[in-house]
């Protein structure tokens, strides 16, 4: 389990990364925390000719920052520093709630948030959370920058929407509003594993009506985001929540069989976890509304 030969680059500024990518394009791979890329290289599932190691960039921020109504992270912010960030706990509570489900502490110490988004694993938590929160990423290259909304980030399993000469310099989540409530639910066989099915919920309360958006992971080629029809107060006293989730699950999710779960089992999980997430998020939106 050793990688095929590659040329190793150690840029010190973001500009050098741009230049290397401009020259090497699809021949090169970016190395961030290495928690997904290194196993792929070692198993020779991919053999890029060049590796561009971001870990020696100068003057990179180590933790999340607040910027214009968004919480943002740069390319070397480790998952563990997001997990421990008070800013994130206060401003992006869904992200805070989810971090514990992303792998294990040792992996979070190395793995980056940006890397997880770039990796675009449909079973990963962070892409689904970014999508349900309507976050965005900032891509850059030698020719400039562009902001990509979460909904346009993911093309397919392990496939993001960056050009060969582009890389990600930032991920941005909007700060939570006072009337919002969130919940995250997943089922993994072991603590910290990729989930068989997971779902993030964002609920907004307006008067008696609650609108809920769900972002599923592990249920399609990319994170699947969907909004339930508005739910009245009575919905939460009855099976209306379960029915609404069931319709979304049947209509919009496209899970596959693997050795751990069949389509039918994943669908069952999506319904049960989805309903729990809706109820929890809505309850929090309720109390959030009362607080303000």
């Amino acid at each position: 389990m050793k990688p095929a030969p590659f040329t190793y680059h150690r840029p010190e500024t973001r500009g050098e990364v741009d230049a290397l990518l401009a020259e090497l394009g699809s021949e090169a791979k970016i190395l961030a925390g290495g928690q997904s890329l290194i196993p792929i290289l070692n198993m020779r599932l991919s053999s890029p000719a060049h590796l561009i190691d971001l870990n020696h960039l100068h003057d990179e921020t180590a933790g999340p920052a607040l910027d214009d109504g968004h919480v943002t992270v740069g390319p070397l912010v480790r998952q563990s520093s997001v997990e421990r960030s008070e800013l994130v706990t206060e401003r992006v509570p869904l992200l805070a709630e989810t971090m514990d489900f992303v792998a294990h502490p040792a992996i979070r110490n190395r793995g980056t948030v940006v890397g997880s988004i770039a990796h675009a694993d449909p079973a990963a938590e962070l892409p689904a959370v970014l999508a349900v929160l309507r976050g965005e990423v900032v891509a850059r290259s030698a020719t400039g920058r562009r902001t990509i909304p979460a909904g346009e980030c993911f093309r397919g399993p392990l496939e993001n929407s960056l050009e060969d000469t582009e890389w990600l310099e930032e991920v941005r989540w909007p700060v939570a509003a006072a009337d919002q409530g969130f919940a995250f639910e997943e089922f993994a066989r072991r603590s910290g594993d990729y989930a068989l099915c997971g779902v993030a919920a964002r609920a907004e309360r307006a008067g008696d009506t609650t609108t809920v958006a769900l972002g599923y992971l592990g249920m399609g080629d990319v994170p699947v985001c969907t909004e339930l029809p508005p739910l009245g107060a009575s919905a939460f006293e009855t099976d209306e929540v379960e029915d609404a989730v069931a319709r979304v699950v049947e209509g919009q999710l496209d899970p596959v069989d693997d050795i751990h779960a069949t389509v039918a089992f994943r669908t069952h999980l999506a319904r049960r976890l989805g309903a729990t997430a809706v109820r929890r998020a809505a309850a929090k939106a309720d109390t959030a509304g009362q607080d303000s």
């Binding site: 066989r189 072991r190 603590s191 050795i259 751990h260």
Partner: peptide, 24 residues
Amino acid sequence: LAYDDQGQLQNASFMDFLIPYATE
């Protein structure tokens, strides 16, 4: 050990062969 009917082990890694962690 998830063998298919062609004798291929489909989960020859610790990602898919689930040894319980201390948490389990």
